[in-house]
Design a protein around this nucleic acid. Structure first.
Lengths: 239, 239
DNA sequence: AAGTGGTCTAGACCACCGT
DNA sequence: CGGTGGTCTAGACCACTTT
């Protein structure tokens, strides 16, 4: 009865079978998988084992969980050249997706420690902090914190911040994103980002930090973005 | 007895405590954690729970497992600007690490499907395929497959391929990496890469693909690199 | 031989979700 | 309220590594 022994672990067999059903189109983007208990019955095993298979498929980006509603097949990744395009809405539309940005909070606050050095500020200096959520086709895929300099963009909070910051900057302050320093690596979601994305704390994500400069070479703002690990592909061309 | 209820899950409490011991320096880079069964005793719980805590710490990159030898604190990430520096050995040394490259296989083979289009080849065309492993301070952190064009680099396999390909190209063929198209995203390790890295199949990784051009604007080669998700930070400057 | 992590069983109760 | 995933218990046997 026990599978035991030097064979392929049971959970890898199950994983491969589910994966095959996704690749051959039996399960399509956005489809819901059978419940964990149904999968237990189908594969004649326990939830611990099924969940190991599902966890690996989740790691690879093939499936994801939506709250406690079940497991779903992941839509195709958005792709982005962060050195070329910082406009999320434009990006989505070019790829046939419906974009949405939600401003979660917009406040004046003292600059957080990690942000102080890149923005060349002193302790207790004030900044604008915008917390925003990015969705594609109704699915939350990016949680971002924009740290903006009041010296560059006074009264920022009086504008509509549910769209492109790029456009607000240009239309109201004549400031244009001109160059940037990017840093990113895979990590786990902190509590706040996880909650906003409707994902469990500690799940893997792609952390992208961006220090932006304007057309005069001055520091403009500093963004911290947490992307779902399964939702983004980065493309860069060096020409 | 059951922790139950609307509190923070037990495994997050344990995770936080281990994390704290890493941050306050009680556990240092490279240190081994107590065994899972010891942790069970310390936190008075079962292995399933302990392993959930460890899995999350692994996701965040704080700890990693080395074969069946236990759990260890992850060394600091290497950082790289892939648009500037393609020389792994130089990179490592600049950051005070000891680099090593191991050629696993070097063969002539028919071009794989995914590689055909980027390299502008036809079915059944031949390429050189180099499979290599990159280590920093003795720890395997990158598994790479180089797909090279015999038309550009004839007799490639007769050279020493345990160092920098950049240097082999320049010294023997007068070819210089000039521009490239990069693509990368988080995914799971396929079996072959996992085995080479000494990691379990299906663990998260960063997939980096690179199409290189020479100084004449001709396609040079195509690299597929799987980096440990906890070992690399990418930095790009657009100036 | 002893210890480690890898895999698995067969249950349980909980909070949250949609109906 | 019934079903879902989230968390957890208390064990077990295995293969591999280290002593």
């Amino acid at each position: 009865m026990k599978p035991a022994a030097a064979e392929t672990p049971h959970y890898l067999v199950i994983k491969a079978q589910i994966q095959a059903r996704i690749q051959n189109g039996a399960l399509k983007s956005g489809d819901k998988l059978p419940s964990e208990r149904e999968l237990c019955a189908i594969f004649n095993t326990t939830r611990v084992t099924i969940r190991e298979s599902l966890a690996q498929l989740e790691s690879s980006g093939a499936i994801y969980r939506a709250g406690r509603r079940g497991w779903f097949v992941t839509p195709e990744r958005l792709w982005m050249d962060p050195t070329q395009n910082t406009n999320f809405h434009k990006l989505c539309r070019e790829q046939g997706r419906t974009p949405e940005t939600r401003l979660l909070h917009g406040v004046v606050t003292t600059v957080p420690g990690e942000v102080m050095a890149p923005l060349q500020l002193q302790p207790f200096d004030q900044i604008y902090l915008l917390t925003r959520l990015r969705l594609a086709d109704g699915r939350a895929i990016c949680y971002s914190e924009n740290h903006c300099l009041p010296a560059r963009v006074p009264e920022l909070l009086n504008h509509d911040l549910n769209g492109s910051l790029t456009e607000v900057y240009e239309a109201n302050y004549g400031l244009i994103y001109t160059s940037m320093h990017l840093s990113f690596y895979p990590t786990a979601l902190p509590a706040q980002a996880a909650q906003a994305l409707g994902v469990m704390e500690g799940r893997p994500a792609l952390l992208l930090q961006r220090l932006n400069y304007d057309q005069h070479g001055r520091v403009l703002d500093f963004d911290i973005e947490y992307w779902r690990h399964d939702s983004l592909r980065i493309e860069v061309d060096t020409h």
